[in-house]
């Protein structure tokens, strides 16, 4: 078990390194291919008023003329140990983890990302709780009442859920929840209240995005759970559980659902990992200042350090989630041998 964990950890670090190399290569090459020179990149830091001479000096000092590998080394070192940025007028200390400075705001990227993280985290985790509960419950009931009206209705809605685009379901849920009835939720778009400041406001502001996002995922989980439950409920061990005299609820939950859990858990880890890098569409639809919105803004402004930073953080979550899923596998299914 311990060697297995260590191996998976090493593998995760390797994956992250590879991702960072690829990301760096892309963001180094793309601007160059688009015609950017070391000077034009440096100019973004020193400002428009600087003379050509100053820009050239800054470009040298920032290392834009060094070979790709050296620049990557510096970038990687910045993430691990922090870096000093010297762009002419003065030296700027960028503490670890340093993802560089924004072209636009000249502020380090990492604190910005840290600001955005709670939004995305709140959105993703809140939605995840809803979609897992709703999706799994629907799937279980559908499987138990297979062919019933409930089953057919739920699976119809689920099919819509997995196939409709999020901005559509987003608008529909806005209409359903925000207009024309006394219980409407009129959360102003674009506001986020940190949980520790006011939990009620936090939830109130997020409820619509949660529902929208959760609906999309719940649909898939309902289908997955239903398929899994149909399979496990016809297993011999279910008959054994009934023969022991267990009541039906425990037969379904403790034996049936437990048997169907592995694929649900796998998908959940991957979904959550992806989502923690930013729920781009939901955040845009509701103007939530999360990582996804941050990424979109960064791309729109061609703010490469920001784009790189957000890409790497997103990659980190995916790799991390994969790691957790791999470890949980062994916990969930004792037949999985670790070694």
């Amino acid at each position: 078990m311990v060697t297995y964990i260590i191996r998976r950890l090493i593998w995760a670090v390797v994956m992250l390194t590879i991702v960072s190399i690829i990301t760096f290569a892309i963001f180094f090459l793309v601007p160059r291919l688009a015609g950017a020179t070391s000077e034009s990149l440096a100019a973004r830091y020193v400002g428009r008023t600087a003379s050509a001479e100053q820009v050239k000096i800054a470009a040298d000092k920032l290392g834009f003329n060094d070979p790709l590998i050296v620049q990557y080394g510096r970038f990687a070192k910045g993430i691990v140990a922090g870096a000093d940025y010297d762009y002419g007028p003065g030296v700027e200390r960028c503490p670890a983890p340093c993802f560089g400075y924004s072209f636009l705001t000249r502020l380090p990227v990492w604190p910005d990302l840290l600001d955005r993280l709670p939004v995305t985290l709140s959105l993703a985790i809140g939605a995840a709780v809803i979609w897992v509960l709703a999706g799994v419950a629907t799937g279980v009931l559908s499987a138990l009442r297979r062919g019933s009206l409930f089953d057919r209705a739920a699976m119809g809605v689920a099919l819509a859920g997995v196939s409709l685009p999020i901005f559509f379901t987003g608008i529909v849920s806005l209409v359903i929840f925000s207009y024309g009835h006394p219980f409407r939720i009129t959360a102003p778009g674009g506001s986020f209240t940190p949980f520790e400041e006011n939990p009620a406001m936090w939830a109130y502001n997020l409820i619509l995005p949660w529902i929208t996002l959760a609906f999309l995922y719940a649909a898939g989980y309902a289908r997955l759970t239903r398929a899994g439950m149909l399979e496990t409920m016809s297993e011999d061990y279910i008959r054994t559980a009934r023969a022991k005299g267990l009541n039906e609820r425990r037969v379904v939950v403790k034996h049936g659902l437990r048997g169907a859990l592995t694929p649900i858990l796998t998908i959940f880890g991957l979904d959550l990992g992806l989502l923690l890098g930013g729920a781009v569409l939901t955040e845009s639809t509701y103007s939530l200042p999360g990582m996804g919105k941050y990424a979109i803004d960064a791309i729109t402004n061609q703010d490469l350090p920001k784009v790189m930073g957000v890409t790497l953080v997103a990659a980190f979550f995916v790799v991390f989630a994969n790691l957790i899923v791999d470890l949980l596998y062994a916990v969930v299914d004792p037949r999985v041998r670790l070694g």
Binding site: A243, K244, G245, V332, D333, P334
Partner: peptide
């Protein structure tokens, strides 16, 4: 309530009849 207590059953294939988890 009688199942498992007053009357019990042994099944053919114990590998599939026991919960693997």
């Amino acid at each position: 309530a009688l199942r498992g207590k007053k009357m019990a059953m042994i099944f053919q294939d114990p590998l599939s009849a026991m919960h693997p988890f």
